[in-house]
Simulated assay, not measured.
Amino acid sequence: MQILGFEFELPAEFRVEKISSAGAGSCIDIMGKNAGSLAAALAEQAVAVGFSESKQEAGRIKLERGEQRLLLVHDAEGLTIQTYDPTTLPRARFDGSAVLLDDLRFECGATSIAPLRETYLHDKHLRSGAWRLSGVSAPEVVARVLDTAVTSRSLKRGAVFGPPRGGEEVWSGEAYSKVELVKVHATVESGVVLLEIDLIDNRGHIGRKPSEQ
């Protein structure tokens, strides 16, 4: 079994029940007793090929290698392997102090931008992008993105939410119409802001038959 570039031999007492994928992510459901030991063996092999364990709690092991993520969730009946590998995706686009997604340009006022990845799920008409920004605050970025969505697409501004008390420093908001939705998340990470934007655009698909989309 190939998992994020390394080979893992599945013991005979386990069987693959289901495999699904979407964008840069995949999910493998494996059935079999004593799945906790299987998760531990898989985590050990992942560490041997360069992953590091970022979090472990009852029934869950999370590992990282660069941008790649591996999540192992197990119970008495089996193991679910979730992978995320954005290295297969194109870089998110930017221009100067602005980020670009589809035909939208969001001026962020950042002093520097480190692009992450852009994804597109054709069946959901969903395009997503992520960037790390310096020189601008998270709430300011959210406000700027929503201003662009409202003025350039005539969307309605929704609520903006700040971080919960004692929780992660993340601000989020959205702007929408009957056929479009822009969702934005800005998370403070060690002096920079992780900006994530989702754009759902159904303007060209309303009224079409499924075979025409």
Rank of each mutant, 00 (worst) to 15 (best):
F6P: 05
F6L: 10
F6R: 04
E9M: 07
F14D: 02
F14C: 08
R15E: 11
R15I: 07
I19Y: 14
S20Q: 13
A22S: 15
G23Q: 05
A24N: 12
G25M: 13
G25R: 13
S26E: 06
I28A: 04
D29F: 04
M31A: 14
M31P: 10
G32F: 02
K33E: 09
A35Y: 00
A35R: 01
A35K: 01
S37Q: 14
L38S: 04
A39N: 01
A39V: 02
A40T: 15
E44R: 09
G50E: 06
G50F: 09
G50M: 08
G50Y: 07
S52T: 12
S52G: 14
S52Q: 11
E53S: 11
S54K: 15
K55W: 08
K55F: 12
Q56Y: 00
Q56D: 04
Q56E: 09
E57F: 05
E57N: 10
E57W: 03
E57D: 14
K62V: 11
K62D: 04
L63I: 06
E64M: 15
E64V: 15
E67P: 15
Q68K: 15
Q68P: 13
R69I: 11
R69C: 08
L70W: 10
L70T: 04
L71F: 13
L71Y: 10
L71S: 12
V73H: 13
H74S: 09
D75R: 08
E77L: 12
E77F: 10
G78Q: 07
L79G: 03
T80C: 10
T80F: 05
T80P: 05
I81C: 03
Q82C: 13
Y84G: 13
Y84P: 07
Y84C: 12
Y84I: 08
D85M: 08
P86C: 04
P86K: 01
T88G: 14
L89V: 10
L89T: 09
L89S: 09
R91S: 08
R91Y: 05
F94G: 07
S97Q: 07
A98K: 04
A98E: 02
A98I: 02
V99E: 02
V99M: 04
L101D: 05
D102F: 13
D102G: 08
D102K: 15
D103G: 07
L104E: 12
L104T: 07
L104K: 08
R105E: 06
R105K: 10
R105C: 06
F106G: 03
C108A: 07
C108K: 00
C108V: 06
T111L: 00
A114M: 14
A114T: 15
P115R: 11
P115L: 10
R117L: 07
E118Q: 11
T119R: 06
Y120T: 01
L121C: 07
H122D: 08
D123S: 13
K124F: 05
K124M: 09
H125T: 09
R127E: 06
R127A: 04
G129P: 06
W131L: 04
R132T: 13
R132M: 11
V136S: 01
S137Y: 01
S137D: 04
